[in-house]
Design a protein around this nucleic acid. Structure first.
Lengths: 225, 225
DNA sequence: GTCAATGATTTTGTATACAAGAATTTGGAG
DNA sequence: CTCCAAATTCTTGTATACAAAATCATTGAC
């Protein structure tokens, strides 16, 4: 019998699935059986299907007609592409933030930066991971472009699991913090160009050379459009 | 009785709804009644609901719980924000295209540019509208970043209806073509910085001043985050 | 022993039934 | 006539039934 759900179940469904995918507890390529999911969440297939469709448009899930849903695979190529776009968007956010930040924005940025500094000094990578996110959110906010902020946040979330890898690099925390310094200097100096460059370089993986290389590798097959 | 649908109905549903919204035949704020839509498409509510959910994640439709779906409203503020992001993304695409375009890309760009020239000379605004789109697609392709190309295409489609307004401006076609010239020069010269600037300026509405103004207007209410 | 074909099983896609919240209408009081 | 409240109607949200495709297993031939 059509029972009613405890109100928040609707959102919980999608968020929990999304989270499971983003945190990697559901691995890429894994099949998402509607019946199992329905049983696991204690609902019927209907809301599960709707959640899956939404996750599909969000790019987290791939649905092959009549063949079910799987967690979307992210090849290294696509991953690099996404980091590239992320770098571009962050750059734009930085440029706008430099031009538009208010006094409140400035203070929020400095606070976030200070929190990062303390995490570095404490050598606390987890804390830095968190405060780094806050720092970037503060930049989005200072751009005074809500749509841009949404796009950045979504991509940020999407790339989160892969960013952990980056942190493994030797001294990444110290380097990252130094880059933050350059970013915040440029923003406070209201130098849009410099802020954009600083942020782009901060986000991009190991400089553009790697991305160039992968993109041109793939060019052989994809070729002229 | 659960009938089977003519295969392509599934995609037709979403595409037709999406199209109706993007072309403006469904106006912002309009209610999307599930039963009416179901009747109109000759299906049950189930596939309609799934399509609506997808359009919701795509940002075309707004669903208030228990209160149905309406075509998403786009305030001028958000619109300006989206144009700003579009400009940023196109800029990145231009930068990458300048660095990465192959010989085939170069030829495709020149062909698209030439088609634009002919439309201008013929004074055919509709043709220019179409060829302009091809020109931009060629740039996306030349960036050799499929994810970026998708993002650009999506935003492009989304902003299409509002771009028509821009074309009303005096001599827009001639100005636009001149800007294309600058873009293509920079790309062929493999000057990423210049290509990025040229494209950004090409896409942006009336220079940044307007966007700055609107953003700062809104800053009064949204304030520090 | 391997492979192919056919039948059984599983799983997706759609329709429909029903429950509960929202909108609307009607009836009455002031 | 206007305004408010209760009841009716409408619409959404979920569960379930059923059809058809896809997958899997079994069996038979080579």
């Amino acid at each position: 019998m059509p029972r009613v759900l405890p109100e928040a179940t609707k959102a919980r469904l999608r968020d929990e699935l999304e989270n499971a995918i983003l945190t990697g507890s559901l691995l890429p390529g894994q099949r998402l059986d509607e019946v199992s999911l329905a049983k696991r969440f204690g609902v019927s297939r209907t809301p599960i299907r709707e959640a899956l469709r939404q996750l599909e448009t969000a790019g987290l899930v791939e649905i092959r007609p009549r063949r079910g849903a799987v967690v979307a695979e992210l090849g290294t190529e696509r991953l690099v592409q996404m980091f590239e776009v992320m770098a571009g968007l962050e750059g734009v956010a930085g440029r706008l933030a430099a031009r538009r930040h208010t006094e409140e924005d400035r203070q929020a940025l400095l606070r976030a930066h200070e929190a990062c500094r303390q995490a570095v000094q404490a050598g606390d990578a987890d804390a830095y991971y968190y405060e780094n996110e806050m720092f970037h959110l503060a930049i989005y906010a200072a751009s005074h472009n809500a749509f841009l902020a949404e796009q950045c946040t979504t991509l940020h979330r999407r790339l989160k699991p892969y960013r952990r890898l980056q942190l493994r690099v030797r001294n990444r925390m110290v380097t990252s913090f130094a880059e933050h310094e350059a970013v915040i200097d440029a923003i406070i100096a209201m130098d849009g160009d410099r802020a954009e460059r600083a942020l782009r370089d901060h986000v991009v993986i190991q400089g553009d050379r790697f991305a160039d290389f992968v993109a041109l590798l793939a060019a052989g097959t994809t070729a002229a459009a």
